[in-house]
């Protein structure tokens, strides 16, 4: 976790808050609460945006944009619709995908992803990560790893590259119906496999 400069008792108190309570503090315009939220989720969100964009510079710009957006829209967070983690992930993903689409150079991005290892230049991103998030990541990765490759591919193309099911069908040459079936199967399997992680988020 990135070291916090807010070493006041209030900051200590914020560290003990749950994610949703922390977002409420952000909605109350408390910058130190945003700092705590940043410390918890920025490695996850930057990893996601780097994976989508393939460029650390752009990914960091998106990350900054995401947290400024959260600062202004924290009051719109609806805990009945998603966990804070998912809310932030979807905001960051949406922003990164928007940028990716505007670039219209998906192929070049893929090359960049291969050339630029995520986290390069910054030592030990895992060490900066919240323990809970790290454990969650390990669980998710192990479950995604056992997903059939064709189902995983469809899910990754949709999530990390923002492709619609028709676009996936066009790119992979798989019939649209098959793409839909694979998406549905992947989602159902993950829902079963990730029950503990989901329960933790709710």
């Amino acid at each position: 976790m990135a070291p916090s400069t807010d070493s006041t008792p209030l900051a200590d108190h914020l560290g003990a808050l749950g994610d949703a309570a922390l977002v409420r503090q952000v909605a109350d315009r408390r910058p130190d609460a945003l700092g705590e939220l940043y410390d918890r989720f920025s490695p996850l969100l930057l990893g996601l945006t780097v994976r989508i964009l393939g460029s650390r510079g752009e990914a960091e710009e998106v990350l900054q944009d995401v947290f400024l957006h959260v600062w202004n829209r924290a009051d719109r967070y609806d805990p009945s619709r998603s966990s804070v983690s998912t809310w932030l992930v979807l905001i960051a993903r949406s922003r990164a995908i928007d940028r990716l689409r505007s670039r219209r150079v998906v192929e070049r991005t893929l090359e960049a992803v291969q050339q630029e290892a995520p986290g390069g230049g910054h030592a030990s991103p895992e060490a900066a990560e919240n323990v809970l998030i790290r454990e969650r990541r390990e669980r998710v990765r192990s479950e995604l790893a056992v997903l059939p490759a064709e189902q995983r591919e469809v899910l990754e193309l949709a999530f990390f590259q923002g492709l619609s099911q028709s676009e996936i069908a066009g790119r992979t040459g798989i019939p649209l119906g098959t793409v839909k079936t694979r998406s549905l199967l992947a989602m159902k399997k993950l829902r079963q496999a990730l029950r503990p992680a989901i329960r933790e988020l709710l």
Partner: peptide, 21 residues
């Protein structure tokens, strides 16, 4: 929706530059 949110955890984490915070 939570399942989709968890898919993001497949991406390796990345530590932002300290000055960004």
């Amino acid at each position: 929706t939570e399942v989709l949110g968890l898919v993001a955890y497949d991406a390796p984490p990345a530590a932002p530059a300290p000055e960004l915070r």
